[in-house]
Design a protein around this nucleic acid. Structure first.
Ligand SMILES: [Zn+2]
Ligand SMILES: [Zn+2]
Ligand SMILES: [Zn+2]
Ligand SMILES: [Zn+2]
Lengths: 141, 141
DNA sequence: CCCTTACCGATAAAAGTTCTCAATAGCATG
DNA sequence: CATGCTATTGAGAACTTTTATCGGTAAGGG
């Protein structure tokens, strides 16, 4: 299992450590696009001796190797995403949870690139709103 | 000048101070969507005694009153935008500058809301790429 | 001109992230 | 399986970005 992950790490001359695997599993297990601290707290029960610095270090490495993605929705927080397929996001402005939106349009990039002549490497689309849970609690706004 | 700004502040029981006006002018003058520190450095020559805390305080208040907007592109940095009209952004992944993209589609929200049944209050679209300046310097990638 | 209080500057504190370093452990090699 | 090289770890310091605290100041209404 996780053959792709292990192969990719080996190829990049990265070692397969328990901490690194657990950090990856931590992000993958939490489908809510967790922050570094949330990953730390998810991994800690299984690996009580792990350091927060190790979590940050491995999140950084896994992103460098293209095994995780970063997203920026809130102020001052970096969130991590194990879903590498092209997709958009929905950010609940009340509970701050981020969920995937399974749609994507490469046409948006092509159209923008054609209009401006700029070199485009990607685009992020994020919807803001209230999730169904939060809509029940505060029907205001 | 700045009649709308002054009226809006008065209406909200906010005082018109030199610092507050200069912070607003600082964001407006820098069309690059500056960070709080960049605003501070832009204002300092005109108001050498201003404190960084005052810049943060007023950016926060101006956003609360709907006179500025926040955007989140980089890791851990909040940028400010004086352009209140609906528009998208282009983020250069090399020099980190953010520029406006004068297009917007409310249809995207309607379509998403219809598909998912979720309550949408807005959406952000950001393109990543290399600006023309950076493309000259590093034609790689 | 005076009074109330929102605001200011300075600084400490909090939150998020990265750096430093000695000790450890992957893993290639034999 | 034993050995050696070095990437990685844990702990804590340091750094960056943002917010809170507080005594003094000044905006603006009366
Ligand atoms: Zn919610
Ligand atoms: Zn996602
Ligand atoms: Zn650039
Ligand atoms: Zn803008």
């Amino acid at each position: 299992m996780q053959a792709v992950l292990v192969d990719q790490l080996r190829k990049a001359n990265r070692r397969i450590t328990v901490q690194r695997m657990q950090v990856f599993e931590g992000v993958k297990g939490l489908d809510s696009h967790p922050s570094a601290l949330e990953v730390f707290e998810a991994v800690k029960p299984r690996l009580p001796s792990i350091s927060l610095a190790t979590v940050y270090r491995n999140l950084h490495i896994l992103r460098l190797e293209g095994l995780l993605r970063e997203i920026h929705c809130d102020r001052g927080i970096t969130r991590f995403d194990s879903n590498l397929s092209e997709h958009y996001h929905f950010h609940c402005t009340s509970c701050q949870r981020v969920s995937d939106v399974p749609s994507y349009s490469r046409e948006i990039e092509r159209s923008f690139s054609e209009k401006t002549g700029l070199h485009i490497s990607g685009h992020h689309l994020t919807f803001q709103g209230l999730c169904n849970d939060c809509l029940k609690v505060e029907p205001s706004r």
